[in-house]
């Protein structure tokens, strides 16, 4: 076989590794291939959608995340069939210092949703400034979290994940686990504007994966970082300390909520609807925490 370009060398390497890998790994990759092929998308002649999503990229790079999903966090989903086809907003709690919760929720939609979906994430602005990360995010379907991006995704019938707690949730302290931080209300206005059903998702597990003892926000600002969490292992063990605990994830999908009204209503009227979504997520917490026997099982 002739190898005349780096791409073909890489392809050969992929094949060799593929042939050598154990059969359970091949089966997992086979499952990813089958699921990605069934994702409803609108692609151009080069295999991208208008926002740069490339299902082929997802297919080729999903395996490590699927391994985390199956064997590290051992994700269990409850009532995922409640997610309707077509446009939908998944609204979930956010925790754990690093966005493994977003990764596991989107993996669940791909590996267990029917039809399989590539859930679109809404990222912070600075994610687009990170080399390599920005490309991986874009090819995987994540967009900068602006109202326009979110609205056009919903209008195109996509499944969009939002975490209205934002970084407030991501860096919450261990003592605040399973307490929802303040919710932004942007998602509710967008849901009203685009007439989109909301599925509340309660994520159990992420809140203990990386216990936050303190958030050194002053120091973080000094280094131009979004946050500087202090955990039992970080920054003590360096980058290795960012490895999350192998907690067991449980994803509880609530009943779809449909809201009627006008996106330009007063804050108070919007807040009232936001609170109903919060209450639904808290209900999931109660059930999930009662049903599990410990954070690792």
């Amino acid at each position: 076989m002739m190898a005349d370009s780096p791409e073909s060398v890489l392809a050969i390497a992929r094949e060799v590794v593929g042939a050598m890998s154990p059969s359970w790994l091949q089966r997992l990759q086979g499952r990813i291939d089958e699921r990605v092929a069934r994702v409803p998308t609108r692609l151009n002649e080069y295999g991208f959608d208008d926002q740069g999503l490339a299902p082929d990229f997802v297919r080729q790079n999903m395996l490590p995340i699927a391994l985390l999903y199956e064997y590290y966090f051992r994700v269990r989903t409850v009532n995922i069939e409640r997610v309707p086809r077509g446009r939908v907003l998944l609204v979930a709690n956010h925790a754990g210092q690093l966005p493994f919760d977003a990764m596991m929720l989107s993996s669940a939609m791909l590996l267990e949703g029917e039809p399989p979906r590539i859930a679109r994430g809404m990222a912070e602005y600075w994610v687009s400034e990170l080399p390599f990360v920005s490309v991986a995010a874009g090819r995987g379907g994540t967009l900068v979290g602006t109202p326009l991006n979110c609205a056009s995704m919903l209008e195109a019938g996509e499944c969009v994940m939002v975490f209205p707690e934002g970084v407030r949730g991501m860096n919450k302290l261990y003592e605040d686990r399973y307490k929802l931080m303040r919710f932004g209300s942007g998602f509710m206005r967008l849901a009203l504007e685009t007439n989109t059903p909301i599925v509340p998702v309660s994520i159990i597990g992420s809140e203990e994966q990386q216990p936050g003892l303190a958030n050194l926000s002053g120091l973080a600002r000094l280094f131009g970082m979004p946050a500087l969490p202090l955990t039992p292992t970080f920054p003590l063990l360096g980058p290795l300390g960012l490895l999350p605990l192998p907690v067991k994830y449980h994803l509880y999908f609530g009943e779809p909520l449909s809201f009627e009204g006008d996106a330009s209503e007063d804050d108070a009227d919007i807040e009232e609807r936001v609170d109903r979504v919060r209450a639904a997520i808290e209900e999931g917490f109660e059930r999930g925490l009662a049903e599990r026997s410990g954070i690792f099982s």
Binding site: D50, Q51, Y125, W126, S128, E129, S134, L143, V144, T146, L148, N149, S152
Partner: peptide, 8 residues
């Protein structure tokens, strides 16, 4: 800009 949405 990094914050540019699609479909401006």
């Amino acid at each position: 800009f990094p914050e540019n949405p699609y479909g401006m």
